[in-house]
Design a protein around this nucleic acid. Structure first.
Length: 166
DNA sequence: CCCTGATTCGC
DNA sequence: GCGAATCAGG
């Protein structure tokens, strides 16, 4: 890979923009960060005004499932059926935070549309995240069996007057 | 250990 | 001139 004028100009730009050598190397492609640094020095570009972010903006690791039933197995060591979820345009409000569940729940899952007050239900994921969902079971397990279910309310984000409680 | 830039030195 | 190897630092 040779240093064409085009690549050198891009290198200058990215370097002045504060990108790290490895980032620039990835951007240019087919080159190592050492090559970038070497070139930068040969061009006399070293000594940037500011090293952008000393704290690396690392992507966050995905969190663990928010409900034990996502990972629990039944007594027979049979994996639970995949949780059925529904993608709704809702604005959830958790009125009581979930606590660890006492027992694994193995029963039919329902969407938030079918949730009732008596049902075991819980949020999935972090409120505010795109992947946030509600899930519940159709059986009436109640809090004596499942201490994890949360008392939740939701309202359509598009129409907050039509507030409903699940 | 991960990352960073700086430097050296054989090619 | 190039860049891998190496170094020093956060």
């Amino acid at each position: 890979m040779n240093w064409t004028d085009e690549r050198v100009e891009l290198l200058k730009k990215l370097w002045s923009d504060g990108l790290s050598a490895s980032q620039i190397a990835a951007e240019l492609g087919g080159i190592t960060r050492n090559a970038v640094i070497g070139k930068v020095h040969r061009l006399g570009l070293s000594g940037r005004a500011k090293a952008v972010q000393s704290t690396a903006p690392r992507p966050r690791k995905p969190r663990a499932p928010s409900h034990p039933s996502m990972v629990f197995r039944t007594a027979g060591a049979t994996a639970l059926a995949p949780v059925r979820t529904v993608d709704l345009d809702i604005e959830p409000i958790i009125q009581r935070a979930p606590r660890p569940m006492l027992e694994p729940v193995s029963c039919e899952r329902v969407t938030i549309m079918d949730l009732r007050e008596c049902m075991c239900r819980w949020p999935i994921g972090d409120p505010g995240s795109e992947s946030f969902r509600f899930c519940g079971t159709r059986s009436n397990m109640g809090s004596s069996y499942c201490s994890y279910h949360a008392t939740i309310a939701y309202q359509p984000a598009s129409d907050r007057r039509r507030r409903a409680v699940a």
